[in-house]
Design a protein around this nucleic acid. Structure first.
Lengths: 259, 259
DNA sequence: CGTGGGATTGATTGCTATCAAGATATGTGG
DNA sequence: CCACATATCTTGATAGCAATCAATCCCACG
């Protein structure tokens, strides 16, 4: 029923940097206060900052969850691998995302994480969480906000995977991932955004095979709805794509997504 | 590809009770500190306590998210309905679950919630969240724990739906829902637990039709793995069911579930 | 220029959805 | 406690979407 991912990707290694020497260029919109809180506080309390190369593993499912992480830059994937190699991508982590914070009860990570392209994350000891929270009350709100966003994203994926056809799911996926990318500030003059995912990523996120994602994308492309490939994503007909996804809601000026 | 749920279930109405007059019998294990924190604090700060009859809606997707809720007793479903009636169940909310707390950025609920059987929930104003957090630092940890558990559950469902066959998914679903039910304390002498879900619930949670859930359950039953029906669930062969689900991990005395 | 990862395309298989009809259960009013 | 109404569960036949299996093509790179 499902494609195998037999590739051995896990090369564990990351460059650890003293937090004091790291200066991150603000490449995100400054008007987005909410999102920055997490990153700022994370940077401040980080035990260390890690630079991950493409394919490097941040942590693996089952390991002791002694640290949690906040993405400062780049993309990462959260995934689980079944015994026979089937892979389910749970979510993509963009800057501001919190990783490995299962809530405290769980002593082990519930999924694996690896970098797509080069990524930078702040590492914080899980044990220090309640201390930080008592000093930085806003951090709790920020964390809850981040976790809430992650939950929404998981619900979206679940709906795509469970109750949408491949065509609808891919269309919906592209719409929401593009929206997330834009929130982080990136944007090109022609409306294209940076898009480091390959078709296998999309498939593993939506419970489809890469082959079928290929066919689906090809059709969407031929209909003039999107342009994907070469690390770029451009939605050429947002309304049409939303209609295809089955989530079009007319509203004021800017069409809004739902479901 | 998918079943329709054309039934009109939404009868909105709930009995509102003054929190001071409500005494809840502790029907859960007292050794479970973590879980109780949420309920205790929620009861203390609740604007009101609501009693929902079976099928009553707590809130609907798209409504202004002015309140968030903590389940005190009973079961509820969180779901989304697509335009053509397809329904995706996002999760089931058992006592201790937090509902409607999307993180603060979202001003609207991202899903609908209704009661399965009779349920009791505490309602808290979203606006008071940060105030409560500053007074009750432990509430932040408890909320994060609850949200984290919800995320884990969503990841489980996503993996079931995306990368497992119907047979594997149903087996895995029964294992994890049974575990959650047990954590709430209920348990019968023969190992059966209260199970208010019907086959359509299971199907809508796993992206399957009720018909196919029926066939799948029937097969699992005939193999002596489980007994389901009449509001009860009994796992008669836990190891076999785990093998079927593809998540069996030999370990110490008690076999543990993973993935 | 090879090399390898990723994208395409075609042919075929198969798991689940659909459509249809009954059989059981559960619940309600008299 | 019975009769009817509705919900839920079963079972069978058929259709369809997406997986599988297999090449081939393309392009970035050393």
């Amino acid at each position: 029923m499902v494609g195998l991912s037999l590739v051995t990707r896990q090369k564990r290694s990351s460059i650890v940097v003293d937090p004091r020497f790291v200066k991150i260029a603000p490449h995100h919109r400054e008007d987005n206060r909410e999102d920055n809180t997490v990153r700022d506080i994370a940077r401040h309390y980080a035990r260390d900052i890690r630079l991950l190369q493409s394919g490097n593993e941040l942590f693996a499912e089952g390991e002791a969850a002694e640290m949690f992480f906040v993405v400062l830059d780049g993309w990462l994937v959260q995934y689980r691998i079944l015994e026979d190699g089937r892979r389910q991508i749970l979510d993509f982590a963009l800057p501001g995302a919190v990783l490995g914070l299962s809530g405290g009860a769980a002593a082990r990570y519930g999924y694996s994480v690896e970098a797509i392209g080069t990524a930078t994350v702040a590492a914080l000891p899980t044990s220090s969480l309640s201390d930080i929270l008592s000093v930085e009350p806003e951090f709790a709100v920020a964390l809850l906000s981040s976790t809430g966003a992650a939950l929404e994203s998981a619900f979206d994926s679940l709906t795509d995977t469970g109750r949408r056809t491949a065509r609808e799911a891919v269309a919906h996926f592209l719409l929401r991932i593009e929206q997330r990318i834009r929130q982080d500030g990136d944007a090109a003059p022609d409306g294209a955004v940076e898009f480091p995912l390959i078709q296998e990523h999309i498939g593993d996120a939506l419970g489809l095979t890469a082959v079928h994602v290929c066919r689906t994308l090809r059709k969407l492309r031929s209909e003039g709805l999107v342009e994907v490939g070469r690390g770029k994503l451009r939605i050429t007909n947002r309304r049409g794509l939303a209609l295809t996804a089955g989530v079009f809601h007319e509203q004021a000026a800017k069409p809004r997504l739902a479901c």
